[in-house]
Amino acid sequence: MRVLSDNDYAGDPDGLVQLAHHALSPSVDLVTVISSHLRPGDPFDDSGLSAEHGASAARRVLELSGRGDVRVVAGTEQQLSDRSTPIRSAGAEAMVAEAMREDTDLPLFVVLGAGLTELASAWLLEPRISQRLTAVWIGGPEHPGVPKPPGIGPSEYNLRIDVTAAQVVFDDSDIPLWQVPRDAYRQVLASMTELQQRMGDQGELGKHLFATLDGIADMCGTFGMSIGETYVLGDTPLVLLTALQSSFEADPSSCSYRTVGCPRIDDEGEYVPGSAGRPIRVYDHLDTRLAVEDLYAKLARF
């Protein structure tokens, strides 16, 4: 399959782990990497240049992965202003161009670990892309009937990056969508001890990736907080659901999902009760063993 990866590579470094994992996966053709923006005021990068900074971080990881051949472009630094006006960024244009290629029959998966600005803009620029790709998105709060973590705030981090873009993708578009909401992506939990031993001790790439994760613990410490002994590799399901599909009758067969009517998104980033549009996949169980063991093995062999 072809994979186009769109993530906030200047944000939570779990996206850089996902990028390295995809780069080391021989079953995917990693065609393009898009660095998308963070929300204004985000503590990871409040410079207004998070997409540009993330592109540099992504290029560094690809170089360490031996994949300097993969094209990296920066998306827009802005949120959508409304639901009908796309932002013509290098990222959105690259997504349209890849989806509309006529020289390959390989299926295209657009994997997204942050906001949905680039996908929404790409669809607004060329609605026909919805017939030519599958979007796999890490984001969105728990669906009805699934309890939220204690003390959690309104909406969800990735959805809040650009609520208007989420409304375009969920409410307006007909894009085939596999969603990994918060209750699912939080399942990919690794201890910092195992990460230090099985990632940090595995060459320059592993050392670099672990340092970015460990740096978050240091950053939180400056605010008087401790992240404890674990880290959520929340973007790793993007690899699990694409590169690690079953060999025969290809599908993420070790994971489970529900087919639901796509909910509408309100202006606060919450699902509108009772709304149901086109059918989408919502993953509720992930094969975390396969995901993290494959990551560690590929780092070690590399």
Rank of each mutant, 00 (worst) to 15 (best):
N158R: 09
P149T: 12
D171A: 12
L133S: 12
Y157R: 14
D105L: 13
W178T: 00
D162G: 11
G113R: 07
I138G: 08
L133F: 10
W137F: 09
G113N: 13
Q167S: 05
A135V: 15
P154L: 02
P154V: 10
T85V: 09
V180T: 02
E98R: 06
T164R: 14
P141D: 09
Q187V: 14
L106E: 14
W137S: 04
V168N: 10
G145K: 10
G140D: 04
S155M: 02
S155A: 12
I129S: 10
W123L: 12
S89Q: 04
L177N: 02
V70K: 01
I152L: 04
R186A: 14
R71V: 13
D103C: 07
V169R: 04
V169M: 11
T164F: 03
L159C: 00
T104L: 06
E156Q: 11
L80E: 07
A92V: 08
P141G: 15
Q179C: 13
F109Q: 01
G153K: 11
G145R: 10
A184E: 04
S84K: 11
A94P: 13
E118G: 01
E102A: 15
L108D: 02
T76S: 15
G66H: 09
G153H: 01
P144Q: 03
Q131T: 08
S84E: 12
I175P: 00
R83T: 14
D105F: 04
G151N: 00
Q179P: 00
Q167P: 04
T134I: 13
E98S: 12
V96S: 09
V146N: 06
R101N: 12
V110M: 06
G153E: 13
G153M: 01
G153L: 09
G139D: 03
P176D: 12
S130G: 11
V72H: 04
E156F: 01
T134Y: 00
S173K: 12
M100D: 10
P149R: 10
L80N: 10
E126L: 00
P176Q: 07
V180E: 03
V168A: 06
M95T: 14
S84Q: 09
P147G: 08
P181A: 01
E98H: 13
V70N: 06
P154C: 00
F170Y: 14
V70H: 03
I87T: 05
V169E: 06
S121R: 08
F109P: 01
G68Y: 08
T76D: 10
A74S: 15
T117W: 06
I129V: 15
F109G: 03
P154Q: 10
